[in-house]
Amino acid sequence: MPSMSIFGTITLSQPDPTPGGEQLSALPRDDGGPVFAEPWQAQAFALAVKLSEQGHFTWKEWAAALAAELQAAADRGEPDDGSRYYHCWLAALERLVGEKGWADRAALVARKEVWAEAYRRTPHGKPVELAAGLAPPGRG
């Protein structure tokens, strides 16, 4: 199947018309590259797997939460070509963490601000610690 090979680029195949004449969206294709586009996706993946593995929620609960987020994203008209998949994964994780009472929306937002501040205050090349975002500002 020499026509199957796609090297380094993403190509779109022409959608086939269905018998009803309606055009369905084309399949996104890959070249067998890395499954995680960015490190945060791998971290989010691992969090869900570990929480489930340790019995904090069942995989069935997880699949339902993820499916709901994927559906919500589709309803919002986001491109559902796989590129938003881990965004939905993350949203599902945040929702389950809230439902389980481990951290509510406000706690997540507050923690995010502390991390952002920690990055802004940490000199380039130094490891970023959460505490740096909590310390009083050095100046200004």
Binding site: E38, W40, Q43, A44, Y86, L90, R111, K112, W115
Partner: peptide, 8 residues
């Protein structure tokens, strides 16, 4: 998203 994952 990276910050949200770190927060979680």
């Amino acid at each position: 998203p990276a910050l949200r994952v770190k927060s979680l």
